[in-house]
Design a protein around this nucleic acid. Structure first.
Lengths: 347, 347
DNA sequence: ACGCGTTACTGACGCGGGTTAGTGTGGAGG
DNA sequence: CCTCCACACTAACCCGCGTCAGTAACGCGT
């Protein structure tokens, strides 16, 4: 049998001091400890391979040095979320800076329980990603003043949140299409409109058209849902609804499917129709044609959420809302409309 | 100020019993508790909104009910890992079945520290994903008998591991090419060969060729590294090395880049050259052409790793090695070689 | 009336470490 | 020589909960 893990008492015995002294040395309260003693303690600890017992420390000290990431996403969403890995990386990096770890909890969008993470003291705070408006748990923990950061946004709930500026991003994408000369511009959403990100992006699309005095008919807008399959179907419906110069697809993954549908219908991108995506997933640049899209700073998003949460745990304060900027990445899936191409050739 | 969180003593007082009784009721040791008392305790707990303090429970009981997932991956790898989300989902699901949570720790491949998660008692076990052969931490925690499950495999280390059968999967993919009539079959690896998954897949490729009495020249094999960009470069090198009927690309993401290079060189897939990928990422079916690939059961992999670890925490035993089967998914990026097509036309 | 289980509960200790209120010692100042 | 204080350290309590070893009350057989 292995010797049981060493405790601070073992270190104390070995160094010939009290447990209190060990605690002082190892936690930097060295003010009153002589250098010689301090060194003895440090040596003893390292010889024994001493690691403080996190739960005991938490019990005594109160903080778990852990934050939770709650993913309120259905399986299809998670699988399709090409940026989750990056967001997670950003969040763990931010957490580590403050000495925190990250617990990940994937819950079903409805009825998933996660508040226990907080109430049981396993985590000091939570980043909640993509909750529904009617999330029952969220209101409870917010009104109990637990530190929570929303990744995404939820109208009508006054919580600290971090999100990307979906509206401005979408608007920029559509303005790009308009500036190329397109007028009949369709829109395929990234998700049902109950998801705020989806409705915000749609909003940006509408704003850009309005500004250009273009009135979109209702059948210019089709809802898709997360995966390429749904994008394929959505584009098929759009094609059935009429002719388009361009389509703004509010998700690269969905755009993959949409472009597949165009290919199947014999339309060429961008010669016959221009496509702008959203997210800039790693493969967007390698699609045929390379996809013009709106870059969503996934790592930064995770990092910002983690930082905001850790910050909030340290010094509670009023809710703050952070919006990260997106960036339009122009590749080859957008170009001038066919008519203007012809005009240019005729010229 | 909010009232502080209720403790089991508060519940005991409210129910008019001792703390011990509360503990017995709430932990199912009801054998000696009368139904009336038991109900009083349960009511009191729910009225107070009592949640046991996890760290205190762990300190008393010994188990953290938490497992760790350690990702030994560089940023590019993580970003490119389209299946990570699914694997993570599988692992958290497996953990939840046993009442465990999951802490995720992303560490740099070299020098990243994660053993502290175990030594500090924050987790009861670790799933280590993709460590290097020379990982310094791993040997330590293994020889200290901590419960560890390797996701992937590491020759020469006797640890419980869960992996996909890379060799058989690659072999099946190449056999598929051979059965179509291809002979000159190149290979682009998914990663440097220091990664066992990469060398195993290469092994499978070699085995299939050997069985068909094909001797690959060294310049049929080119190393890539995780992302599409590297696949693009690798394919360019392959094209410079000679003509090929087909190429086995040991990663779908890399294959995306490789196909891009073929397109740039004016070769058509599968008419001029067939391509088989590996992983079956969600977008593989939506590539142009839809990619024939080897399905890697990501969710199941995570689930198996989680289950194996939890199992091992419960009842330690000798290391076990689990290999999950892959499945060849034939789509449209593979077809008969040009010569045979011509032959068929001539016929 | 007494012993002897059961039944239904409780007292007290321990998990490992943070922390507060001390304790003893030596040296400087008066 | 005594006082006083900074110095270097320690005893003891606390965090919240699990759990073992009781204990009191009660019923039953003789």
């Amino acid at each position: 049998m292995l010797p049981r893990r060493p405790t601070s008492a073992d270190v104390a015995a070995r160094a010939g001091v009290s447990r209190t002294t060990v605690s002082f040395v190892l936690n930097g309260r060295d003010g009153a400890i002589s250098p010689a003693t301090r060194q003895r303690v440090i040596d003893a600890a390292s010889q024994l391979g001493y690691h403080p017992h996190a739960p005991a420390r938490q019990l005594a000290g109160g903080s778990s040095q852990t934050i939770g990431l709650v993913l309120c996403q259905s399986p299809e969403q998670v699988a399709g979320d090409a940026l989750l890995a990056d967001t997670l990386r950003g969040m763990t990096a931010a957490a580590r800076l403050a000495g925190f770890r990250v617990i990940v909890e994937a819950v079903e969008p409805k009825g998933g329980r996660y508040a226990d993470l907080l109430r049981s003291g396993r985590t000091d705070g939570l980043v909640v990603s993509g909750p529904r408006v009617d999330d029952p748990e969220l209101r409870g923990i917010v009104s109990d003043r637990f530190p929570v950061v929303l990744q995404g946004s939820l109208p009508g709930l006054d919580v600290t949140s971090v999100d990307v500026d979906n509206r401005a991003g979408a608007r920029g994408a559509v303005e790009h299409l308009i500036s190329l000369g397109h007028r009949r511009i369709g829109c395929i959403t990234n998700a049902p409109l109950a998801y705020t990100a989806a409705s915000e992006r749609l909003d940006g699309y509408r704003a850009a058209l309005r500004e250009a005095n273009i009135e979109p008919s209702p059948d210019w807008i089709v809802e898709a849902a997360f995966d390429a399959q749904s994008g394929h179907r959505a584009m098929a419906r759009l094609l059935a609804a009429g002719e388009f110069d361009a389509v703004f697809v509010a998700s690269d993954v969905v755009a993959f499917g949409a472009i597949g549908a165009l290919r199947a219908a014999g339309r060429r991108v961008p010669d016959d129709i221009s496509i702008v995506g959203f997210d800039d997933i790693p493969l967007a640049a390698f699609l045929d044609p390379p996809l013009t899209t709106v870059r969503l700073p996934a790592y930064e998003l995770g990092h910002a959420a983690g930082t905001a949460l850790v910050d909030r745990i340290g010094h509670p304060g009023p809710p703050r809302r952070t919006l990260l900027a997106t960036e339009l990445v122009v590749r080859s899936s957008t170009g001038p409309p066919r008519s203007s191409t012809i005009a240019r050739h005729a010229h």
